[in-house]
Design a protein around this nucleic acid. Structure first.
Length: 194
DNA sequence: TGCAAACCATAAC
DNA sequence: GTTATGGTTTGCA
């Protein structure tokens, strides 16, 4: 039985779907209706689920952390994400995306170079990211440092990046399992929006 | 700039 | 199996 919890924190709804102590999906939205719709779309139709009004302790902690990420804070928590049910390639891309530090962005192509596959395929994984905003798909942009797309709307993507900017000025390398990819300061993207 | 073609993993049929 | 579909990228006019 998958347990679904939602909670409103400072005008934004956050939600988590828990499956046997693991996180099957997370999401956020200004409307609770949309949030539930997003979450339920992620969990398989065949899985029985129940929506709870009151969060469990674990859910409460997770939702609080989601909000902190949403606010642009550094959150070091390791979340028990349910990767096992996802395709291998999807897992690789999501795990690489997890390595992008707060205040930095990278491109679809950079991730593709690090984990294999094509930028297009990486975009597909982002588009169906079950763990927003834990997996920071908002930190992935196009090669020319223009935005690309975002599930929650481009405005939200920009807002995320401006809350996360840390004043970095130089790019750096991030190691993943096999390869490495380059990350750029979030400012490099934001400057196109002044 | 702008457009066409290559890209490649998924999901849906 | 096969096809359609992208949160892309690159090359070429």
């Amino acid at each position: 039985m998958i347990e679904v919890y939602t909670q409103k924190l400072d005008d934004v709804w956050f939600g988590v779907a828990c499956d046997q102590g693991q996180i099957a999906a997370t999401s956020f939205n200004v409307s609770q209706k949309m949030l539930l719709s997003n979450l339920l779309e992620i969990i398989p139709y065949s899985e029985p689920f129940q929506v709870f009004c009151k969060p469990s302790d674990f859910a409460k902690e997770t939702l609080t952390n989601l909000k902190r990420i949403y606010c642009g804070e550094n959150v070091n928590t390791i979340f028990p994400l349910a990767f096992a049910s996802l395709p291998t390639y999807t897992q690789k891309v999501l795990k690489a995306t997890l390595q992008i530090p707060v205040g930095f962005v990278t491109s679809y192509g950079e991730i593709a170079k690090a984990v294999g596959g094509s930028p297009r395929a990486v975009g597909n994984v982002m588009a169906s990211n079950p763990f927003a905003p834990i997996v920071p798909c908002h930190r992935v942009v196009k090669t020319d440092l223009s935005l690309g797309g975002y599930g929650g709307g481009l405005k939200v993507k920009v807002e995320f990046l401006s809350r996360e900017k840390r004043g970095f000025s130089t790019s750096k390398q991030v190691q993943v399992n096999k390869g490495a990819f380059k990350v750029f300061p979030a400012e490099h993207v934001l400057k196109n929006f002044v």
